[in-house]
């Protein structure tokens, strides 16, 4: 089988690479583009540590083919911060100590960002259900949920400041 030429956009940068037809987006990001922030915890769609946004949709990149990224936009954890400005979720994770080992953190940051892109006023239950696809074995989720709620508040205040 021949390799596939993928033209795509990753974290806002036009990007191209060659890949095998059966290669996952996760492997292409990690091994061809050096974007190792996206982690592999299972390879079967069950842990969420490989979460990325594809056209703004939260997906486990281990279940997406690299070729599916053709002509689409991919956002990985490396693209969540803008310059030295951390996303409110990233800042809240630091302040709330919402990570211990940190292996789940990239996936959770991407998943939480995608929730807050849609809803900056989620209930605790909405946060818990949105993040249910992201396993964390260290924290018991308490501080993660608090961090996402805090980030939501910061984002709400930012928008009201802009409006004011």
């Amino acid at each position: 089988m021949s390799t596939i030429h993928v033209r795509t956009t990753v974290n806002g940068e036009p990007t191209e690479f060659l890949c095998e037809p059966a290669e996952t987006l996760l492997d292409a990001l990690r091994n061809r583009l050096g974007l190792t922030g996206t982690k592999e915890g299972c390879g079967t769609g069950d842990c969420g540590s490989c979460s990325v946004l594809l056209e703004g949709r939260l997906v486990p990149s281990c279940l997406v083919l690299a070729a599916e990224a053709i002509d689409r936009e991919v956002l990985t954890v490396e693209g969540v911060a803008v310059g030295d400005a951390l996303h409110p979720v990233q800042q809240a994770f630091l302040e709330q100590a919402a990570l211990q080992c940190g292996i789940c953190t990239p996936g959770l940051v991407v998943a939480a960002k995608s929730l807050l892109d849609r809803n900056t006023n989620p209930t605790e239950q909405e946060v818990r259900f949105w993040l249910a696809g992201n396993l964390c074995r260290c924290t018991g989720y308490d501080k993660i949920v608090r961090a996402v709620m805090d980030a939501a508040e910061v984002m709400r205040n930012e928008t009201s400041e802009v409006r004011a």
Partner: peptide, 23 residues
């Protein structure tokens, strides 16, 4: 006190290198 951990930034931005990240 509760300062921010030094290795935190690398971990929330995906820069930290774990076992499978070396080549």
């Amino acid at each position: 006190t509760r300062p921010i951990r030094h290795d935190g930034l690398d971990k929330v931005t995906g820069r930290a290198n774990y076992g499978a990240d070396f080549t």
